[in-house]
Nucleic acid binder design. Structure first.
Length: 355
DNA sequence: AAAGAACGCAACCGCGCTCAA
DNA sequence: CTTGAGCGCGGTTGCGTTCTT
């Protein structure tokens, strides 16, 4: 049983907004606000304007138009280098949480940032890769690579690997091995983690780091929770200093675990999908690199992985594991208030990468 | 100059979450 | 507790514009 449509699809207009429609929407919202009900807004606007035909737009469409275009203080285009840095660093850290990223850039919308990233910034940072994605999928349609035709899983992998690759490039790493063997080079994921929660997770997962080969590569900070300087402490900065707190992951008895800031509950909920992710990434790393194409000096996806030794591959699998899978929604992160202090965060961002 | 390819961006779609009834 | 309406988000699409051959 499908969900009931939010509006009468047959009687709403689609496509680009006219100036007149914009004016109606803007005038109404500026005077009365949204009324906390976007769905009913078009009809209200009709009554407000005393027009026989109200705004023939879906409420969701009105919301989108207002938030992305008509809302005051919206900036379009002309992203500064500082903004580029913030977007890039946050993308590496949290992935495509555009709303969270947008919350750090006043006047920018998630849609704008998403478009900017997909069309320009990604190419600028990673170099142009002419459709390497479709190349991979088409290269071996009946063979092992055909398994990639699972949109959900390969999207996750691409996201994770893209972030790896991006981070490596930003660190100017020529040699993938140097990246995977040196924890100091790994990115700062989950900078906002809460150490107590993580500590509890560590306890619950009953990990014995000293018995775990892969784990030895992790910084000690993952398990040594020093009390922060309470007077000057700042939760974000603390999180940044011990950035691996919220990122640590390894294997215990062959079972991968993943520590994140979302708590044990989410960890448990996500365990299955995390495992499948690990399996999928393992497949990519161990078995399914034959269809990849190197592209001159540019590092094509997976190039960095396919030449790795065994232990390094494990690290790659560990690293590439998306800490927050599709099964964990954006609400787990709860957008803007996660990062209450913009200035502090920019400190991190600007210190992290210079592009 | 023309045609096709690539790009950029506004808008749509569908899904998961929240919350009130 | 269940259900459904509304919200918010990320992914995707469609189309106008620009670039390349």
């Amino acid at each position: 049983m499908g969900r009931a449509p939010c509006c009468d699809k047959a009687n709403v207009k689609k496509g680009p907004w006219s100036t007149e429609e914009d004016a109606k929407l803007k005038a109404y919202i500026e005077k009365y606000g949204t009324g906390n009900n976007w769905i009913a807004l078009p009809q209200k606007i009709g009554r407000y304007i005393f027009s026989l035909s109200w705004l023939k737009r879906c409420g969701k469409s009105c919301r989108l138009r207002w938030l992305n275009y008509l809302r005051p203080n919206i900036k379009h285009g002309g992203f500064s280098e500082e903004e580029d840095n913030i977007i890039c660093s946050l993308y590496i850290s949290i992935g495509s949480r555009w709303s969270i990223i947008a919350a750090q850039l006043p006047g920018r919308t998630d849609n704008d940032i998403k478009n900017y990233w997909n069309t320009r910034l990604k190419k600028k940072l990673l170099g142009r890769r002419k459709d390497s994605h479709s190349c991979r999928l088409n290269h071996d349609p009946n063979g092992v690579n055909a398994v990639h035709d699972n949109s959900n899983s390969h999207t996750l992998s691409n996201s994770a690997i893209e972030r790896m690759q991006l981070h490596m490039q930003l660190q100017n790493l020529q040699d993938p091995l140097s990246f995977f063997n040196n924890p100091a080079l790994w990115p700062k994921l989950h900078p906002f983690s809460e150490r107590n929660m993580i500590q509890q997770q560590v306890t619950n997962t009953q990990i014995e780091p000293s018995h775990n080969e892969g784990f030895n590569q992790l910084p000690n900070a993952s398990f040594e929770f020093q009390p922060s300087n309470s007077e000057n402490s700042n939760p974000i900065q603390d999180g940044l200093v011990n950035s691996f707190d919220g990122f640590s992951s390894s294997k215990s008895s062959g079972i991968p675990y993943n520590i994140c800031s979302n708590g044990i509950e989410q960890f448990n909920t996500n365990f299955q999908s995390q495992s499948s992710l690990q399996a999928e990434l393992s497949n990519l790393v161990y078995n399914k690199t034959s269809g990849l194409v190197s592209n001159g000096n540019e590092m094509t996806e997976f190039d960095c992985i396919k030449e790795m030794g065994q232990s390094t591959k494990e690290s790659a699998v560990w690293w590439a594991n998306d800490f927050d899978t599709k099964s964990s929604t954006s609400n787990s992160w709860d957008s803007a208030y996660v990062l209450p202090n913009e200035g502090m965060f920019q400190d991190y961002v600007l210190a992290g990468y210079n592009m």
